[in-house]
């Protein structure tokens, strides 16, 4: 009985949260045309979020690529087809690892920074002060950050994929002596436009989701130190779960 009530409660909470995010998204989308008229604000935010995550994205991409090289080589060797390492690495990175790991890292680095920045602005009355100066904080503060993040994330995904492939190549070609020419030519021959489209779609969808969660949690943070901390944690947790759920759906649809 108690479990039923708890389930009903959390289902209610979930519905309320989804409703809240939807309303917020509506308000945000309404301000996006006006925000697009001030590209300098957006460029500053692309720089902010991008530069913030670039080093961590590049480092992780190199290691993910290298691991993919090790495991891929080991598996392919059993079938005597190590020349296909380029294909395996590229497909794995473009379709799955690139977008997903970038999104997870982005949520942890830039998403939390975004949420805590907005939460702190809420807690220190900065957002109210902006409203009192007859400026809509949705247009001036939230929308440029959201758009900047949505632009930055696909770019970071591309960087991740490029460096990741370099990592595969480093292990496969330099270390295990896979033939360099067949590594690249097989990759070029078998990676299709569809595969790249899947990566691009995932990068864009995850970018929308992660940035929406970050600005929503930050903007609606309870205006205390504890509330800002909670908003930051929730940003990471919800972004990660949502990314993996969306990943499954997109993969299933595009198969």
């Amino acid at each position: 009985m108690k479990i039923v009530r708890e389930l009903a409660d959390s289902a209610g909470d979930f519905t309320a949260a989804v409703g809240g995010v939807t309303l917020f998204l509506g308000r945000l989308l309404g301000q996006i045309p006006a925000a697009l008229l001030r590209p300098s604000l957006i460029v500053a935010q692309v720089h902010n979020t991008g530069a913030l995550s670039l080093v961590i994205i590049m480092t992780c991409a190199l290691f993910v690529g290298a691991v993919l090289g090790l495991l891929g080589y080991d598996t392919l060797l059993r079938f005597g087809s190590e020349d296909a390492l380029g294909t395996v690495g590229a497909l794995g990175l473009v379709k799955e690892l690139g977008p997903v790991v970038t999104a997870l890292l982005y949520a942890g680095r830039a998403g939390t920074a975004l949420a805590s920045e907005l939460g702190l602005m809420r807690a220190t009355d900065q957002l109210t002060a902006i409203e009192m100066m007859a400026v809509d904080p949705m247009r001036r503060v939230v929308a440029p950050r959201f758009i900047g993040g949505v632009i930055a994330m696909p770019l970071l995904t591309v960087v991740f994929i490029a460096i990741g492939i370099f990592g595969v190549q480093l292990v496969g070609v330099q270390n295990f002596g896979v033939d360099s020419a067949s590594f690249w030519s097989q990759m070029r021959a078998s990676v299709e436009l569809n595969d790249i489209a899947e990566g691009v779609i995932k990068g864009c969808v995850f970018g929308l989701a992660c940035n929406l969660i970050a600005v929503y949690e930050g903007y609606n943070a309870i205006p205390t130190a504890e509330g800002v901390g909670r908003a930051t944690t929730r940003t990471v947790v919800i972004s990660a779960v949502l990314t993996l759920m969306l990943d499954y759906m997109i993969t299933a649809v595009m198969l």
Partner: peptide, 16 residues
């Protein structure tokens, strides 16, 4: 609101 000015207790300056 453009005819009003409000001062918050901690100033509420934009920190960035």
């Amino acid at each position: 609101r453009r005819r009003m000015g409000m001062l918050f207790q901690n100033g509420a300056l934009l920190t960035d």
